[in-house]
Design a protein around this nucleic acid. Structure first.
Length: 301
DNA sequence: AAGACGAAAGTGGTTGA
DNA sequence: TCAACAACTTTCGTCTT
């Protein structure tokens, strides 16, 4: 659909309005996708269930077999007598096959489900292909390392997507990604941190400037104002107005200031909604940036 | 009436003894 | 293990346009 109009990585998804938007031209690629959203999700869920219904009996078959003819380590037969040498060797081989087939099938089932989830979330958020690939690589590595055990596949996939986006500097907030999963934001954040640590992934520090284009285009901001906002952030880069602050909030504040300067004012309310922060945060960031850079606006103490 | 402002209390996670 | 802590949110009354 949209690939023809715009290079894939320039398209963003505005979940609030249910539109795909090109970050370069600000043009709406396809609206009302939200109407399809639920069906998409329902469809996937159905499919997931269908899959599990197909998968389950097979699964049970393997397990039944495994349990009913479970080969323990005692090397005794049913009557308690020791097995012959030959029977013992056979038993060892059986145990190996049993272990391998169980591991492989569970790994495959896991990956199948994970890739479905990746596809689903990726589509909903219009994640670029490169990031999808990156996410799938990250997930596979996590799976090999046993990091998925004890966590939901969906959450680990969500964290993988977030990690891939961070790594490739694609501005997606945790909230946006969490929105389409059952798990909550904090759970995904925690897994994200684990992934970074355990897989030794280097992630560039989130740059508020990356969010300017995104937020700006969602609000129909002029290119000049976006440029100004980016410049403001660049200047504030090494001040304590920026240190350790939420990049989305900083971007929103910079856009707000740029809007004031360029007489292209955007209300804090709208900005807050799009940036995913509160008005109060924007106000705080905006005040500290103004102080740090000594920007003079008419109404200042 | 809408928007901006900021104080004060609340939230949930991290940190360090 | 738990209290202090930082960053952000919620809520709300007041001021400005």
């Amino acid at each position: 659909m949209s690939e023809n109009i715009c290079p894939q990585n320039k398209i963003i998804f505005d979940a609030e309005r249910g539109e795909y938007i090109c970050t370069e031209t600000g043009e709406v690629i396809e609206d009302r996708v939200i109407d399809q959203g639920p069906e998409w999700r329902a469809f996937t869920m159905e499919e997931k269930e269908k899959r599990s219904r197909v998968g389950e009996p097979l699964n049970m078959a393997i397990y039944d077999k495994g349990i009913s003819t479970f080969i323990d380590k005692r090397n005794k037969d049913a009557t308690g007598k020791n097995l012959s040498q030959k029977a013992r060797l056979t038993a060892i081989r059986w145990r190996k096959i049993q272990a391998i087939s169980r591991i492989q099938s569970s790994r495959d089932r896991n990956l199948t489900q994970a890739m479905n989830e990746l596809e689903r979330i990726g589509n909903l958020l219009a994640i670029p292909k490169v990031a999808m690939n990156e996410a799938s690589i990250i997930y596979r590595r996590a799976l090999e390392k046993g990091l998925v055990r004890g966590r939901s596949i969906e959450s680990v996939i969500a964290a993988s997507i977030y990690t891939a986006c961070r790594k490739l500097k694609i501005p997606r907030t945790l909230d946006e990604i969490a929105q389409y999963t059952k798990g909550d934001k904090n759970e995904i954040a925690k897994i994200y941190r684990t992934l970074i640590k355990e897989l030794d992934i280097k992630v560039p520090i989130a740059d508020p400037k990356d969010y300017v284009t995104r937020i700006g285009s969602l609000l129909g901001l002029s290119g000049a104002s976006m440029k100004l906002a980016a410049d403001i952030l660049e200047k504030a880069k090494h001040t304590d107005a920026v240190w350790g602050r939420d990049p989305a909030g900083l971007a929103a504040a910079a856009i707000y200031i740029a809007g004031l300067i360029n007489k292209e004012q955007i209300t804090q309310d709208r900005l807050a909604k799009v940036a995913g922060v509160t008005e109060v945060t924007i106000r705080n960031r905006y005040r500290s940036i103004i102080n740090a850079l000594n920007i003079k606006l008419k109404h200042l103490p």
